[in-house]
Structures are given as C-alpha cells and as structure tokens.
C-alpha cells in the first residue's frame, strides 16, 4: 500500500471501522513506515483529545420533554405553506436563491411581476375547476392565509422596490431565502432536485380553493399586485 492510501484510511483504522483484510494491510504498512506511524500518532492525539471532551448534558427531564416540545411547536404553530408558494415559484424561475442579487432592484421588480403573473395565471387557467370545487384550505382562515402571502410579497410591489432601503431589502431577502435554507437545501444540487415537486405543491394548494375563496384571492392579487393590469378577468362564466 502507498502512504497516501494508508493515510486516507487512518481514521477508520484508528476507529476499528475497517474490515480485517484492510486493517491488516495498514498494520503491515505501519510496521515499516515511520512517517505513517507518526501520522497515526498525531491523529490519535487530535481525535483522542477531541473525544475526551464532554459537553454539559441538559438532563433526563430535558430529553423526556423535548419530543413533546417539538410536537407542540409543530402542531400548534403549523401554518399552511403560504410562504413556500412564493419561494417555490421564485425558484422555479430563478433556480437557487443564492443566484438572486438584491444589488439589482430593477431585476427584482421584474421578478416579482413575473411571480405575480404566474399566480394570477394559475388562478385564471384553473378557474373552471375552482367553481365546481368546494374544498377548504384547512383550519386557518382565508384572510390569515392570504394575508401571509401578502406580508411576504407586498414589499416587492415593482413600483416601490427601488425606494426600499438596503436594510429593508436585506430583510426581505432573509424572509424569502431563509425558508429554503432551513429546509436543508444547502446547495444548488438539492434545490434543483426539489424544483418539480415544489411547483407541483403550489398547484395543489391553489386547486384547493372554492369559488368564494377564489374571488377573495383574486381581489387581493388585483389590489396588491395588478394595479395597472386590466386585461385579466375571472368572470364566473
């Protein structure tokens, strides 16, 4: 075995994680290579030193209660995934949030307009289905649900975007991008993989609205984002 191969596996050797044959080969090599022996010795010192450290344990009561605490937090604070709808559509257009740069507010304004049009488009093309449906959207009131969307997207009203301060832009970016980060999407690869599913989710949520709810959504969209657009209409014809 070459030194490089041995050193690549030294930690597994040290931890006893290698199979017998590989461990034997490394042992043989160590017997005749002082450099690798020295490597192993210093590795033992570092790993052993790290492993000998202990952190304070919060105690049995904490471990007993923690699952209940998470359960409570999850079920009590649970909200329909209104923010991800916006994020997901955003990602569908732009890929990973990291690509987004708030140094170009005009570009961001155009982006928001695109998101708004997509949402409006979804509502428009699905309208026929909505009128026959009657499913609700869970326990949340409709006002809270779409108020949530508005809270996230309203700062992006294209006309006003350029007036926002850097602080406000940073805040908005955290609200939009932060959700992705917390989902464990640590990089471009993961986000791309999720993209189809995420867009599908957005559709699924919009399809859950009945006609009355759809009217409400449309009014909000029209008021908030489509002030200058008169061509879209959603008559109940």
């Amino acid at each position: 075995m070459k030194c490089r191969e041995v050193q690549d596996q030294l930690i597994e050797f040290y931890e006893g994680q290698l199979d017998q044959r590989d461990a034997e080969q490394i042992r043989d090599h160590l017997g005749m290579c002082s450099r690798c022996r020295e490597e192993l010795s210093s590795l033992e010192k570092v790993i052993g030193g790290l492993k000998s450290q202990r952190l304070p344990d919060p105690g049995a009561a904490f471990w007993r209660d923690f699952p209940k605490r998470v359960r409570k937090a999850f079920y009590e604070e649970r909200r329909p995934i209104q923010v991800p709808i916006i994020q997901r559509v955003w990602e569908g257009i732009y890929g990973t949030p990291q690509w987004f740069s708030f140094s170009k507010p005009v570009s961001a304004g155009v982006s928001v307009a695109a998101i708004v049009l997509i949402i409006a488009g979804l509502l428009f093309f699905k309208a026929g289905w909505f009128w026959t449906g009657s499913r609700g959207i869970g326990e949340e009131t409709l006002e809270e649900y779409f108020g949530g969307i508005g809270a996230v997207v309203s700062p992006f009203t294209p006309g006003s975007l350029e007036e926002l301060s850097l602080y406000q832009l940073d805040d908005i970016s955290k609200r939009l991008v932060g959700g992705f980060d917390d989902m464990g999407s640590s990089g471009e690869e993961v986000l791309k993989g999720d993209r189809f599913l995420l867009q599908e989710d957005a559709f699924a949520q919009l399809e859950g609205l009945n006609s009355e709810e759809l009217d409400f959504v449309y009014d909000i969209l029209k008021t908030r984002y489509l002030k200058s657009t008169t061509s879209l209409s959603m008559s109940k014809a």
Binding site: D181, M183, G184, S186, V190
Partner: peptide, 30 residues
C-alpha cells in the same frame, strides 16, 4: 427544535434517496 419542526414541515421535500439522519443534519447546519 427548529431543526425538527422545519424537517417535519418540509417532509415532502425529503425524497428518501438519502437517509433521514443525514437530511436532519443538513437542516441543522442551515
């Protein structure tokens, strides 16, 4: 707590091609 809540909230984005533990650690890091 936030790690677990986020995991459960976004469980549909866990595609089960990796193991759940590594996914949790990824969320924890973020």
């Amino acid at each position: 707590q936030k790690t677990f809540v986020n995991a459960f909230r976004n469980i549909r984005s866990f595609d089960r091609r990796s193991n759940f533990k590594t996914w949790l650690f990824r969320i924890a890091i973020n």
